[in-house]
């Protein structure tokens, strides 16, 4: 009887927690089909979470008229995907060198890398703007390539500064530490070089870590707001998060905001659901809870 009560209590607790996290998303999705007046009218009653009243797709059509949403979405997919792929390669290689190879000063390097985690982005955003503006750029001019200076208003200025990531390096490092070193020694005996060990042994065993880093890299890239506002001037290059501020003008269209928010939340949810199992596994195995 006691254990039944315990189980019921556990289930009830989990249901409450699930509702706490799910209801805002339900509210967002349901409201995206309602008029502004109805959204405000339903506040304070359970109707706010239910698809009741005159539902329509007007907010979605209005949203596309107000914001070049498809372009923004495409940009974010491109920027986030490339950042994730490059981030996994660069950070796992760095972590491999720090974790598996023996060289003087590696502990100091790891310490310095970890120390950078405490510096908030906002403190070095402006210096970074100055810095990226000094970098050389190969650009297409008509039918030929030319060298110029400054990365402002490009895709790569939204990608490359965020490829190397201290937390990802630390996370990979922790995960690689859990892979037996004997595997390296056996591979070396068989004539394998470091890159072969990385590619053939360590990476194939690091699926959960890769999945976790993919999610943790994707989220800030997808949610990027301040940086693109500072370095991108052309509307055609902007990511989705900047688009949300298009709606906060004098006449705020709440239904359209909910429609836009629903549209940009779906890819993130899909990614999390796809990697959920690996994410949980790797968090549990590394003991890192970012």
């Amino acid at each position: 009887m006691t254990s039944l009560l315990k189980r019921l209590g556990g289930h009830a607790g989990r249901i409450v927690l699930a509702l706490v996290f799910a209801l805002p998303l339900v509210f967002m999705l349901v409201s995206s089909f309602k008029t502004d007046d109805q959204i405000f009218g339903d506040l304070g009653s359970p109707s706010a979470f239910l698809p009741v009243g005159a539902l329509s797709l007007d907010n979605y059509t209005g949203m596309f008229e107000r914001v070049p949403a498809a372009q923004f979405l495409l940009n974010s997919v491109l920027i986030s995907s490339i950042t994730v792929v490059l981030g996994i390669i660069v950070n796992s290689l760095a972590a491999f060198a720090l974790s598996r190879m023996r060289w003087p000063g590696r502990k100091l390097v790891l310490t310095v890398i970890i120390a950078t985690l405490i510096v908030p982005f906002e403190t070095f955003a402006l210096p970074l703007v100055w810095w990226v503006n000094q970098l050389p750029l190969l650009r297409v001019n008509g039918f030929h390539l030319e060298w110029t200076t400054g990365w402002m208003d490009t895709y790569q200025v939204q990608i490359l500064p965020f490829v190397a990531n201290a937390f990802s390096i630390f996370f990979f490092h922790q995960f690689f530490q859990s892979i037996p070193k004997e595997l390296d020694e056996a591979a070396i005996m068989d004539g394998a070089g470091w890159f072969t060990i990385y590619r053939r042994i360590v990476v194939p065993l690091s699926g959960p870590a890769v999945a976790t880093v993919a999610i943790l890299t994707f989220l800030p890239a997808w949610n990027s707001y301040l940086w693109p506002l500072m370095v991108v001037q052309s509307e055609e290059l902007r990511p989705v998060m900047v688009g949300i501020s298009y709606f906060f003008q004098l006449n705020v269209g709440w239904g359209q905001i909910m429609a836009y928010a629903s549209m940009i939340t779906v890819p993130v949810l899909a990614l999390f659901v796809a990697f959920q199992r690996s994410f949980v596994n790797s968090i549990a195995s590394t003991g890192v809870k970012g």
């Binding site: 490009t154 895709y155 052309s234 055609e236």
Partner: peptide
């Protein structure tokens, strides 16, 4: 593509 192609986006690095 990343370095060159991306730079060919509208606006480029021109100050205008």
């Amino acid at each position: 593509a990343l370095v060159a192609g991306c730079a060919s986006g509208p606006g480029g690095s021109s100050s205008g």
